[in-house]
Simulated scan of single mutants.
Amino acid sequence: MRGRLLKGLRWTGLGLLGLVAVFALAGWIGSSIPRNSAWVEPVAGEERSIEIMIGNNGIHTEIAMPIVTPEMDWRATFPANDITASSRPYTHVAVSWGERAFFLETPTWYDLSLTTVLNAMTGGEGVLHVAHYVRPAPSDDYRVLRLRPDEYRALVEAISASLTDPEMREVLPGYGAYDVFYSARGTYHIGNTCNQWTSDTLAAAGVTIGAWSPFAGGVMKWVPDLPEG
């Protein structure tokens, strides 16, 4: 009896590992299939462009944008009064999307539970995470991407469409003094992750990006590395 139980557990474990491997392979393949393959990033100095930044912590990606440009003033949508440290001279807002319980109940990775992960994978309510930054510096994990004005307007439209209507919008405390959460549209699940939201949002702007990008690496492999020197 004990032998059959151990054998069953072993096969179950192997089956789970197999599913993880298949999902990882599917994510790699899906993120390698390009959307907007003809897009070319504008060359700095040759035509007007807006510099955004794509951030990556290894698991999660975000889109950082200037707070004010001729195309969009984010101060009305994401007012600094919604965060604790509201008086700093912020220059950028960084926006990302994710599952409500996962975001709100895991301020650190130590707070992550299997129940939260499973619930998020099977379907959860979306929220936007918005962080305010002062002159974020480009790095290997925070790469610059240039958009033409019409492309940036399309990006703005896609991000704005993720928010719930103002009269129904919840403003929820962030992790620290500089960030905040807003209730958002969309359902998070294993096929529609935070990184897929980043991918879809960039695709809406016309940027070359993978078709299905559940992992951060699937997004970042399309964003040019920081130039050397």
Rank of each mutant, 00 (worst) to 15 (best):
L16H: 09
L17T: 06
L17F: 05
L19P: 11
A21C: 12
A21L: 14
F23R: 10
L25Y: 07
W28N: 01
P34Y: 03
G45H: 02
G45K: 03
E46M: 12
E46A: 09
E51V: 04
M53N: 08
G55L: 01
I59F: 10
I63R: 03
I67N: 15
V68C: 11
T69Y: 05
R75Q: 11
N81V: 12
I83E: 05
P89Q: 05
V95C: 08
S96A: 12
W97M: 14
W97K: 13
F102M: 13
L104M: 11
E105D: 10
P107I: 05
P107E: 06
L112S: 00
L114H: 12
N119F: 09
A120K: 14
T122V: 07
V130C: 15
Y133C: 03
P136M: 15
V144L: 11
L145H: 05
L145Y: 05
R148D: 01
R148E: 01
D150L: 06
E151M: 09
R153V: 11
A154M: 15
E157D: 15
L163W: 02
L163D: 01
T164C: 00
D165W: 02
D165V: 00
P166N: 11
P166R: 11
V171F: 14
Y175D: 05
D179E: 06
H189V: 04
I190Q: 06
T198G: 12
D200A: 11
D200V: 03
V207L: 10
V207Q: 09
T208E: 13
P214H: 07
G217M: 03
G217K: 02
M220W: 07
W222N: 08
W222G: 06
V223E: 04
D225G: 12
G229H: 15
